[in-house]
Design a protein around this nucleic acid. Structure first.
Lengths: 340, 340
DNA sequence: ATTTTACCTGCAAAGCTTTGCACAAACCTT
DNA sequence: AAGGTTTGTGCAAAGCTTTGCAGGTAAAAT
């Protein structure tokens, strides 16, 4: 009953020719008799012959599998990027194996090793929140496995990356807040070692500077990227003698927690406090008020990361490129106040 | 510079023994001299030897790769299930290759073929919305590849499935609506051939019957699962001479579209119309009012599907099991009305 | 001293494909 | 008719691992 996968050998035996002849015929090798070629091809078609990818992989030392490691699978930002990666790679005949680091460096290291052992042809990664070491990625490089980072990156000198211009976007939001009447603009930020965190903080400071507001350390709160700690950070801000009248979150997840906390205190958005976040999670347009956010071109991030990997595989050498994608500031209710 | 992956051959050459000796030593074969075994193991450790999975796969005729096909990657429901699958399979030393059917049967067929060609060891699937044919899955069965469906299923006689009790949940919601004062309960449903759609509709009818409301075909609108058509369906309902005072959506995606449409008409929820959905998307608690919804144990669905696959692989024969997981009805603002 | 046993180790095949090289037959040239 | 081409086909190795079987040596038994 079980349908055996048919091999060159099967075809060869049936037609009383050698395996090599079959192999050549199937790729239209000129040496093989045209009539024989046709017969072989017909049978191969009929029996639905597909070369065994394991054998091919062994021969060519490649698997046509690309590894993808993301901090988590369930937020829209990442799943949508994965969707973009998948689209591009599937078209090129590659498969993707996904692994979630759950924001933990340990799991990330484990995933890298697993995937390396699987002999992936390339690796696309968004760093886990607490990934401070880069050793595991240097190992990837040593093995000459093409590597691409997106969003949260490291080893920028050696590795290709796909990012967005966090600095200018954070700056834009900050000035936007000011134009809408904010005077005490706060920023809930994340772990210092992440590039996206640094850049957004830098943009925030630039923005303050541009509109002539003085930077007040009280209004810059560092936390991790979890909702729980975002809530705590918000409480700290709201408990200040003069609480902020605008808060920029390091991402939307943080801002959703902030929003809940603000609402629970009976304060109103944007009247009392304006809000804006990063990454434009799907529910930015679902919450009330709708959230102002920087929309990342998630699908494009994924596709570009995939393209970079493909390029490196084809070129055979490791090219170092940095692709900066445009984001859009989606201004919605949470940050628009009628300025008197 | 490039670090070659080291093989048994390398170790054998270095130690001047044969490949087979190395292979045996590494699995503590009693035939091999203990001292030699130790030396071999030490070197293997030092050189970080990992068996080539391609060679192993070729030998054992298995890849340790499980395919997963979902209608889309970006909704919380699916990404969260994938997360559960990943957790369980990774632990068992399997890799997952994910493919999105984008709700299209054509893409689904393509994915099945691709994965089959990759020689996956098992396949986990949630049917695409318009998957009416089951031929491609029968092909999977013919090849003796373990197969598991979750949520949207078919071929139930032959294939293991992981589902939830849609009938009773739809019934519960319907009676819940009634208890909260609803008299004209509508249901926006989906494509007829999907089991989840049939079951939820059945539950809806049962519910009506139970509370003594008569079924009115005007209040049962069939559409696909897209937000666009959900909006249209809602419009139809609201334009009725006597519009419904409660709407049960076939899932949350549909209900979000419904909610927007209702709000845009200045009607209020739950006062004018009560709402409830299925699957408890993450933003059910983010929208205002919070949405009443049937919470699927997504993570558990994923883990159970993975376990079923693992079981079939280990048993070597195809077992047919049906796992029904418990759901919880999360009653929130959108369906609670003070009954006078 | 010779046979038996025990103890190690290696050969080779299988799993599947590609490809350089050799070989054979048929054709053409002179 | 003999040597040279052309044309078509197969052998075998490589890529890496596992494992049945054979073979070798040294120690034990007779």
């Amino acid at each position: 009953m079980k349908k055996k996968r048919i091999t060159l050998k099967d075809i060869a035996k049936e037609l009383n020719v050698s395996i090599s002849t079959v192999s050549r015929a199937l790729k239209d090798h000129p040496d093989i008799d045209k009539t024989l070629t046709k017969r072989i091809k017909t049978l191969a078609q009929k029996w639905n012959y597909i070369p065994n990818p394991l054998a091919m992989g062994l021969l060519r030392q490649q698997t046509r599998v690309i590894g993808v490691i993301v901090p988590d699978l369930v937020t829209y930002f990442f799943s949508s990027i994965i969707s973009g990666i998948e689209e591009e790679l599937q078209q090129a005949g590659y498969y993707i194996v996904i692994s979630s680091s759950k924001e933990s460096m340990e799991k990330e290291i484990e995933s890298v090793n697993n995937l390396l052992n699987l002999r992936i042809d390339g690796l696309i990664v968004c760093l886990a929140q607490n990934s401070k070491s880069t050793k595991h990625f240097e190992k990837v490089l040593e093995h000459d496995v093409p590597l691409v980072f997106f969003d949260r990156v490291c080893l920028e000198k050696k590795v290709s990356t796909v990012v967005v211009d966090n600095v200018s976007m954070a700056e834009d939001i900050t000035t936007h807040f000011y134009k809408n009447g904010a005077q005490r603009i706060a920023h809930i930020t994340g772990p210092k070692h992440l590039n996206i965190v640094q850049e957004r903080t830098e943009g925030y400071l630039k923005g303050l500077n541009q509109v002539g507001l003085e930077y007040d350390p009280k209004y810059l709160i560092r936390t991790d990227l979890s909702p729980v700690n975002a809530t705590k950070a918000t409480q700290k801000l709201l408990n200040l003698p003069s609480p902020p009248d605008a808060i920029l979150g390091v991402n939307d997840t943080v801002i959703f927690a902030t929003m809940k906390e603000i609402k629970s205190r009976g304060l109103s958005i944007p009247e009392d406090i304006m809000l804006a976040g990063f990454s434009d999670e799907f529910h930015a347009t679902v919450v009330e008020p709708n959230l102002t956010s920087v929309a990342h071109p998630t699908h494009e991030i994924g596709r570009n990361a995939a393209k970079l990997i493909l390029e490196q595989i084809e070129e055979g050498r490791s090219i170092q490129k940095k692709i900066i994608l445009n984001t859009e500031l989606h201004i919605r209710e949470s940050s628009q106040r009628a300025v008197s």
